[in-house]
Design a protein around this nucleic acid. Structure first.
Lengths: 179, 179
DNA sequence: CATTGATGCGGAATTTAATTCGGCCATTAT
DNA sequence: ATAATGGCCGAATTAAATTCCGCATCAATG
């Protein structure tokens, strides 16, 4: 786990295309990444070492960005989900973005293609905390307005889903600002 | 992994509160769930078996809902992210909802509190695929309109984030409709 | 105030899985 | 035709998960 980890960090992408077995593997691991290579192999029709080899390749290529525990927001007292639309005219690239990404309430940050706004997915303990967050966002340099936000009740949810292959702007995985 | 798995499936929640060490554990596992209990223990100040015991409890209580591989949408050729707002007047509860959840493009389904609409987070290969999805959504029984949608470029993203404890409607984890 | 019971911890032992290794095909390039 | 490559398997090795057990702490109880 040395050269291998380095490869992953450097996001080396041999740009190899995914075959049907790779897809199956991704589907299985999105569901449950705790299974053994023996079981994974059985499900996709490979021996344990072969399955291991595949997964290693998928991680190295960046197809599998991380393996993460999915937390129940209720368990951590953050049941209130909201989407916040902020106007970002005069936005200075990464510095401010990093500031926003450090807010523990912010789960996702999306830039809108061809527009000067961003959409944030946030989760707070209650409405009071949400208001506090909005205030902080408004005070963030580069944010000219926090135009609208909708409070939602999560009904169904699942992790990111796979299906096929790549050509697009590089995504940066970020440090967990939580701890 | 028998009685234990059963417990998790049944979502048994001893409703125990999370202490600071639990939070640390969640934070570490959201970042990287592949580390050994030895390393996890070291990071949070516990022995490997103690760390293991904690994680087992967190899974049993439902705080950790799953351990999942995070997939790069580009690798599976689904780089186009969109949020779709659908009007759901005359919606008949679960059946139709399950239909929507079976669309592989749909990553998340959110019901808006106190409103008759839902917000979907979807990901497709290109605009053509997105249009096809919208057409299918419109034809879904219970959907009276697909009012608006915004196409976004994902800039930063991270898994669900933890912080503290529970009291809310039960969330159902769903089958992966991908395979 | 002592006793009992329950809970969580650490260290050692055991079981299980991850990982490595070598050899075998099949496909592709020379 | 032949060499080289890539991906697979089975066996062997290493590392981690899991179990076991005794100890300490804290809380409820007599």
């Amino acid at each position: 786990m040395d050269a291998e980890t380095d490869d992953i960090r450097q996001n080396k992408q041999p740009a190899r295309d995914l075959d049907p077995i790779d897809r199956k593997i991704l589907g299985v691991l999105v569901e449950d990444a705790t299974i053994s290579y023996a079981e994974l192999g059985e499900r996709v029709g490979l021996s344990p070492p072969a399955a291991h080899e595949r997964v290693k390749r998928l991680k190295r290529s960046g197809a599998i960005r991380a393996t993460s525990a999915i937390i129940d927001p209720r368990a951590v007292k953050k049941p209130l989900l909201a989407f916040v639309h902020i106007d970002t005219r005069g936005w200075g690239k990464t510095p401010e973005l990093m500031a926003v990404s450090k807010y523990p309430e912010v789960e996702e940050i999306h830039t809108v293609a061809g527009d000067t706004c961003m959409l944030l997915k946030v989760r707070t303990e209650d409405t009071r905390a949400l208001e506090g967050l909005l205030a902080r966002l408004y005070d963030t340099p580069g944010v000219t307005s926090t135009r609208s936000y909708v409070v939602l009740s999560t009904y169904l949810e699942r992790p990111v889903q796979p299906e096929i292959t790549p050509e697009w702007p590089a995504p940066k995985h970020m440090a967990n600002p939580m701890y």
